[in-house]
């Protein structure tokens, strides 16, 4: 194993993580809800009266965030290697998987681990493991 020091950003990542944690804390203490993105988005596909507005507002906040970010600082460069076929495949898997598994990186990974939920710890271990194996296969075995 080698460390990619050139792209290692511990302080920025920690600061970003603290902001994510702060948003999670606010949402929990003020609105009484779990900031799990797949659950918030997926709930819009099963609309319940009186339960739609806050979901749209949260998603809108996420979508607007890069525009607000760009007022304060230049947006960091991004690199998307995936082609359209793998984006579609990945999107389907993420959509189906997060709904069947009741959560993603935010709901299980951040909220679940923070509340010491064994269910979320298992889910997080499994999706991390599947991520490690998938990248190993695509980067090292068939690349």
């Amino acid at each position: 194993m080698t460390i990619d020091w050139a792209n290692f950003t511990p302080w920025l990542s920690l600061a970003g993580g603290v902001l994510i944690g702060l948003a999670t804390a606010m949402f929990l203490l003020l609105n009484g809800r779990i900031a799990g993105i797949s659950g918030i988005l997926g709930g819009l596909l099963r609309p319940v009266k009186g339960d739609v507005g806050w979901r749209i507002a949260f998603v809108a906040g996420l979508i607007f965030s890069p525009i607000v970010f760009s007022f304060a600082a230049p947006l960091p460069a991004v690199q998307i290697d995936a082609d359209a076929a793998s984006l579609i495949m990945a999107g389907l898997l993420v959509g189906i998987g997060t709904r069947y598994g009741s959560g993603c990186t935010s709901g299980h990974g951040i909220c679940g681990i923070s509340r010491l939920s064994p269910r979320s710890m298992v889910a997080t271990a499994l999706f991390m493991l599947a991520g490690f194996v998938t990248v190993f296969i695509t980067r090292h075995l068939i690349a």
Binding site: T105, R119, V122, A130
Partner: peptide
């Protein structure tokens, strides 16, 4: 939980997108 988590992980590893960051990348 197990199958859903594994499927999500495969999709995450294929492109590097999970739901939150994908939504936060839509506008740009």
């Amino acid at each position: 939980l197990v199958l859903g988590g594994l499927a999500f992980g495969v999709g995450w590893g294929l492109t590097g997108y999970c739901p939150g960051p994908a939504l936060a990348s839509l506008a740009i």
